[in-house]
């Protein structure tokens, strides 16, 4: 009994220590974001890696999501004789939820793990320590640039995912009936309002920030040994995915309060 209790308190302790560490790390990174020097070269490099290199993945997934979602929802709406609501319904689900969350999860899988592994390898081969002892602020150069890049580029990836998702939906609708792009867009946008777009965009910014931050945190705190690089990459994906859903949960409640539905 006592053993179990101590085990529980022990794991609770590690959890809180982890949370505390992440918070401290976040504070430090944010400080670095606002203090110089600003590494635009590194930012462009990371932005290229995160933005351009992830775009095909996002585009394919977004297209398939839009297509599949439309094809799946169509029979139900046809039963109700409401297939004219399909574009609007798909637009709302893509822009409010599917676009941001699928993009974020893919980025967690690709970018978060990538950053975790890269920084983990740098940590294990003492490159981060080398930067630290030469006073070159690795938190600024390595971490802040990556976190800034994900924060700025994940929302843009989300825009692409939204657009391509709607394209997929348009293709799906046209498999069954012929509908002009104009009518499709008109119907899609009729169901949308700013209270759909703005929270989704803000949410995406947070997704981006935490995708970068968690990858960097996990990489930065890698233990010794090559094995830990894999562990870091892995736990970066898991933690980032979890955090994405938590943010999503918070976002839906906050936007509910703000927009009062």
């Amino acid at each position: 009994m006592n053993m179990m209790l101590s085990k529980i308190t022990g794991s609770l302790n590690t959890f809180f220590i982890e949370v505390g560490n992440i918070l401290l790390f976040t504070v430090n990174v944010v400080k670095q974001l606002f203090s110089g020097p600003f590494e635009h070269k590194e930012l462009i490099k990371q932005g290229y890696q995160i933005g351009n290199k992830t775009l095909p993945l996002i585009a394919i997934t977004g297209f398939i999501m839009g297509l599949v979602l439309s094809l799946q929802s169509r029979p139900v709406l046809v039963d109700f004789g409401a297939q004219s609501l399909l574009p609007g319904m798909i637009a709302v689900s893509i822009i409010r939820e599917i676009g941001p969350v699928i993009t974020a999860l893919l980025c967690a899988g690709k970018i978060s793990s990538g950053i975790g592994a890269e920084l983990g390898a740098m940590k294990v081969t003492e490159q981060l320590d080398a930067m630290e002892v030469s006073g070159t602020k690795p938190l600024n150069f390595v971490v802040a640039s990556r976190v800034l890049a994900t924060t700025l580029l994940v929302p843009i990836l989300v825009f692409f995912a939204d657009a391509v998702g709607l394209l997929g939906s348009f293709v799906a609708v046209n498999m069954h009936e012929s509908m002009s792009v104009r009518l499709f867009m008109s119907q899609a946008f009729n169901s949308l309002s700013f209270s759909d777009v703005i929270p989704a965009t803000i949410k995406s910014v947070f997704f981006g920030f935490f995708i970068g931050l968690i990858g960097a945190y996990k990489g930065y705190h890698t233990d010794k040994g090559t094995e830990s690089v894999g562990i870091s990459a892995n736990s970066a994906v898991v933690t980032a995915s979890l955090v994405i859903f938590i943010i999503d949960l918070i976002a839906v409640q906050v936007s509910d309060i703000i927009y009062g539905f």
Binding site: I156, F159, V197
Partner: peptide
Amino acid sequence: NKNQPLKLGIFVTLGLFIFIVGIYYLGSKQ
């Protein structure tokens, strides 16, 4: 490496373009 800024620039511009057009379209609807 030299092409990176260009490609990133195109990427970002295109993404923002989609966003702005979407916002404008939505705004004109409302």
